[in-house]
Amino acid sequence: MIAEIQIPTVIEEGIVIAITGYAIVFVALLLLYYLFSSLSKFLTWQIKQNLIKSGRFPKHIKKEDSLHISGETAAAIAMAIYLCRDLHDDESNVLTIKKISKVYSPWSSKIYGINKWSKSPR
């Protein structure tokens, strides 16, 4: 004979609250999940349409997922752009050689390279 287990009313009520509450938390976050999965797909679709309109959509891409780039790839591209653009000064890329009137310059003149105190080789 199985003895009947008496559960106090408070506990019974508590079990109902716990199950309902947990279910509501799950539903709330499940809705967020579906919403943001859909939002991501919608935004990708929008990008694809814009690219198709402007004729820049690569034909070899079939799945929309391929339009996503990973954070690592994005970081590598950002680094490359930074190294290319920001690390160097902007220059005009025009070389100008001006002829100066003064012909003689002491620069690299041999007389200045001679040191009277230098030791002569033995």
């Binding site: 609250i17 716990a18 947990y22 799950f26 709330a28 976050l29 499940l30 967020l32 943001f36």
Partner: peptide, 27 residues
């Protein structure tokens, strides 16, 4: 979280601690 929304569900699952502790306190 936005890039991998299904991981949101793990945040929901871990809340089991709240409701079981609630029952434990009632007991």
């Amino acid at each position: 979280l936005i890039s991998n929304p299904r991981l949101i569900l793990l945040g929901a699952a871990a809340q089991v601690g709240i409701f079981l502790t609630f029952l434990g306190a009632l007991f």
